[in-house]
Design a protein around this nucleic acid. Structure first.
Lengths: 222, 222
DNA sequence: CAGAAATATGAAAATGAATTCAAATTTGAA
DNA sequence: TTCAAATTTGAATTCATTTTCATATTTCTG
């Protein structure tokens, strides 16, 4: 029932390296990014001050400029990392289902992965959801393209499902995919940890997607 | 099958009055609000300048202060109107279904109403979606309460549906309701007029909700 | 442990926008 | 037509924040 995966989020890796000792500047840079993600997540783009970020990163506002060109550069980096993580989570979840699984099983796994990261409390992902449509147009443009690339996995999954006859033919695949993404992404607006686990939410979403809420209910809508 | 009603959105009514000649100041105030909604919708909260609003309303930045206390006061008014309209649309859609209709039919109608306003291009509603989580915490707090009140209609509908045995019992009603709202609200992020009508999108959402994509398409599906 | 490179700092400058205000203009009622 | 009230205006003011910069401190290497 539960997903065994080690799909967890760690601190921003300072430097691409695996075992190399991180340079001090890399650590600081990562600390600033973590702080930025946190503040952006909680305050939104408009209300976030460089000084808020500096405070949380235990440094000076002016020090930030040693690591980043500008405020925008920080935002861009946060969004980039968020995208990487989201895509990673979905990939990991997918990697766990056996290759011969049905398309429906794969999609269900992907849903669990996506919901997991969205609701993980990961600051980067949360920040992304929160600030995406607050950023300057040019940057938005850029990340829309990134987003669209990441959507490719989903497109493929739904395509497979249709070919396997698992999706009724009077529905538009794109619309279905986007509605599903909507359910999942919007959940960050209302989800509060405690009453409901992400996996349980994912189960609901999968049921809505594939079976609908009608039990053996009277379909008679005359 | 289609929404026969004249569920349309008009310019901000200047003054509560029905037939009274609108005072000039009321007209101007409404023009500023319309402009504000438009700019907020397109630029988001952070990037909207009072001067943008003024320009679009064909007035001066400083003139705005004759009508509104502050920037915040404008935002608050825009959100208030948006909430009124959304709730109105859903109510209207509901008013059309015969009282003895099944809960499922009512919910389907409500979905059409909600999607209709969300995708209507109405500046107020769009602005609401766009800026809601960018506004200052206190205001957010306030409007969350308003939102929750408006959600009451939906709660009631789902409750009815469950009592009528139209919703399988292993699902949490709140979760289902919120996932549905998510599908619909998120659609503003990706919907582009043209390829797909709001009614068609609503149909997809209703199918996901009640039947899922896996079911066979009914032979005679309108 | 010296000296260079890397990093951090606080103060000052630059920016950009919201808001205030006193005065000018327009409106509408008598 | 007149005059008070309503509305508009542009110029200051205020304010908060980003960014720059010259200098100080720390870290790392040899």
């Amino acid at each position: 029932m539960s997903v065994a995966r080690e799909n967890t989020v760690s601190k921003a890796k300072a430097g691409k390296a695996k075992g190399r000792k991180p340079k001090k500047s890399e650590v600081t840079r990562a600390r600033i990014l973590d702080a930025a993600a946190y503040v952006f997540r909680h305050k939104g783009y408009a209300l976030t001050r460089l000084s808020d970020i500096a405070k949380r990163a235990k440094t000076q506002t002016s020090s930030i400029y040693y690591y980043f060109e500008s405020r925008e550069a920080i935002v861009a980096e946060v969004l980039k990392i968020a995208n990487e993580r989201t895509s990673e989570f979905v990939q990991n979840a997918l990697a766990e289902v056996p290759p011969d699984a049905s398309a429906r099983e794969k999609i269900t796994a992907a849903i669990r992965g996506h919901v997991a990261i969205v609701l993980s409390g990961d600051q980067y992902t949360s920040a992304h959801m929160r600030i995406f449509d607050q950023i300057p147009p040019a940057m938005r443009e850029h990340f829309l393209r990134v987003l669209d690339q990441n959507a490719e996995v989903w497109r493929t999954l739904f395509q497979e499902a249709r070919e396997a006859g698992e999706i009724r033919v009077d529905l538009d695949l794109s619309v279905v995919r986007l509605l599903l993404l909507g359910m999942m992404n919007w959940s960050i607006e209302w989800y509060k940890p405690g009453r409901l686990t992400p996996d349980e939410l994912a189960r609901h979403a999968a049921i809505l997607l594939f079976e609908g809420v009608g039990s053996a209910a009277p379909a008679d809508a005359g």
